[in-house]
Design a protein around this nucleic acid. Structure first.
Length: 513
RNA sequence: CGGGGUGUAGCUCAGCUUGGCUAGAGCGCUUGCUUCGGGAGCAAGAGGCCGCAGGUUCGAAUCCUGUCACCCCGACCA
């Protein structure tokens, strides 16, 4: 062992030491993504993209099962489309990438300069309500054309000032559902149905507990009547909005003239919804589950469930070990978990064992199996779980492992959810006084006041009088916002934690991403 | 767009204040030996127009001017 102190964790700094930097290092160590030459845009690497593909696969199945069909709309949107809905313009105008030319020509110094100015500039979609609305207007003529249930998988661009891999990038991948309905009731039902789909996905696939709720007016999607969301608590106790579902009323239908002739012979505007989740979910997954040894992938979304590490440093047994591992992989692949064959990788790369093992730890693969000559003699495997310590390994009979693998994966999945739920529970507090509320969100500076804001706070369940000015003041002063008004919040008479005015329901307050 | 900062090897950086041998370190990479149910040791090696363009000078990574890019702190945000 070297003179340097042995590294205690695979990731430095730890979450406690510097949470933001820890996050960056987990992304890097997990080989998920990296920054690109284009400011604010990321390169998603194979392991990170495989996670996204699993998110896509599962969600796409859920969308299809609820009657939606995929389609694809243009990346470019005529500038005039954005102008059609006033609130929508306000919300997005400041972060639009604009295309003004369609050609390049060589300048005098050999540099390329834009040429061929467009009559009407195009914006790169920050979201597609307007272009899809214009299309729906053509598709919808009669009540028989409704409901129209469309989803698209796409990239969008929002020219953000500050970006962080997966959490906020200038370009990101997402899905956006857009639906049109004959009645308000139907559209509201759709909005809520898709919110539940997201909550189901977050909890049962990502192992991430979420609060379903409605946004206050100030946090609402530009142009929507109501915005609903799922909010999750990250390990720094900040809230992350992981998905949104909007009831758009007739706002966009009127802006885009989505009209139909109803059964009663009346010409009516449709009622529309939109809903989306993005690659931000990968960021949510990272910050919900990872530890100071790196990523921990929920088994049901893992690109690889089991990695087999052959111990082959003795040439005379190497082939035998490799054969045993390949056969083991084959037997495992015949098993099923969460609707697909168990994914197994035999890592026979010519690397030293420790390096290899730590790479997989940092990528968060749920199960690692080490197989050497000794195990083969005993018909055993040496098994390590990602949700336990990296050195915590146990020998078990090979066949028992194969038979029990799927159950073990589900056990890990359940354990991850339980751990995240307990964490959220631990940092959620019912608060009734202004003093306690402010103390909850004011970082205690232990000793060193130069220290960046340490991890503190969480979710405060407190009454709110509904005054947007109060909400703005709290945001300004404490950096705390109302994450949502929980759908399951019971009626409860109380007084606003800030103003003392009467309130009938607690809302969720927190700092957010 | 306001305030601050940085550009030197694949990565993280030292060197610059006070100009001067062949531009350095750690990690990573390649090769060999020894280790190895564990992120090992020793040795050798590859890799740089010192962001770019001018200028001052016998001589510039270092000083001057310009320029470009990026980072951090604010306002905005899935």
């Amino acid at each position: 062992m070297s003179g340097n102190q042995k590294q205690q964790t695979a990731i430095t700094p730890t979450r406690e030491e510097n949470y933001a930097e820890w996050y960056q290092q987990v992304v890097r160590a997990g080989d998920l993504a990296e920054n690109s030459p284009v400011r604010g845009c990321m390169v998603i690497k194979p392991w990170g993209y495989a996670l996204w593909e699993n998110v896509q696969r599962v969600l796409d199945g859920m969308f299809k099962a609820t009657g939606h069909r995929n389609a694809y709309f243009p990346l470019f949107i005529p500038l005039s489309f954005l102008e059609k809905e006033a609130a929508h313009v306000d919300g997005f105008a400041k972060e639009c990438a604009v295309v003004t030319h369609h050609r390049l020509k060589a300048g005098p110094d050999g540099k390329l300069i834009p040429d061929g100015e467009l009559d009407e500039p195009l914006i790169v979609r920050p979201t597609s309500e307007t272009i899809i609305g214009a299309t729906f207007a053509k598709w919808v003529q009669s009540y028989r054309d409704l409901p129209l249930l469309i989803n698209q998988w796409a990239n969008v661009v929002r020219w953000e000032m500050r970006t962080r891999l997966f959490l906020r990038t200038a370009e990101f991948l997402w899905q956006e559902g857009h639906t049109a309905h004959a009645t308000q009731e139907e559209a509201v039902d759709e909005t809520m149905k898709m919110l539940r789909v997201y909550a189901d996905f977050a909890e049962n696939w990502m192992a991430m507990p979420v609060i379903q709720g409605r946004k206050t007016d100030s946090e609402r999607f530009p142009g929507a009547v109501d915005t609903y969301c799922i909010e999750a608590m990250m390990q720094d106790r900040k809230a992350l909005q992981a998905g949104t579902s909007h009831f758009l009323g007739q706002n966009f239908a009127k802006a885009s003239e989505i009209q139909f002739l109803d059964a009663d012979g009346q010409q009516k505007f449709a009622w529309t919804t939109s809903w989306g989740v993005s690659t931000r979910l990968i960021g949510a997954m990272i910050m919900t589950h990872s530890d100071d040894d790196g990523l921990m992938v929920p088994p049901r979304l893992a690109p690889t469930h089991v990695v087999i590490l052959p111990v082959m440093h003795k040439p005379e047994t190497a082939q035998q070990v490799l054969d045993y591992c390949r056969k083991l992989a084959e037997d495992l692949r015949a098993q099923h978990f969460a609707g697909r064959a168990i994914e197994v990788e035999v890592d026979a790369r010519d690397l030293r064992g420790g390096d290899k093992m730590w790479q997989w730890v940092k990528k968060g693969v749920p199960l690692r199996i080490e197989v050497g000559p000794r195990d083969i003699e005993q018909g055993a495997v040496f098994m390590a779980r990602r949700d336990r310590g990296a050195k915590d390994k146990q020998a078990m009979p090979r066949d028992q492992f194969v038979q029990g693998c799927a159950a073990l994966l589900q056990e890990i999945q359940d354990g991850m959810f339980a751990r995240a739920a307990a964490f959220r529970e631990q940092h959620t507090r019912r608060i009734d006084t202004k003093a306690e509320f402010e103390a909850f969100f004011t970082p205690k500076r232990a000793g060193d006041e130069n220290q960046p804001a340490e991890i503190h706070g969480g979710f405060a369940l407190a009454h709110f009088c509904g005054d947007a000015a109060v909400e703005a003041e709290v945001k300004d002063r404490l950096g705390v916002t109302i994450r949502c008004i929980p759908l399951d919040a019971p009626e409860e008479q109380g007084t606003c934690v800030i103003t003392g005015r009467p309130s009938s329901r607690r809302v969720v307050w927190g700092k957010s991403y």
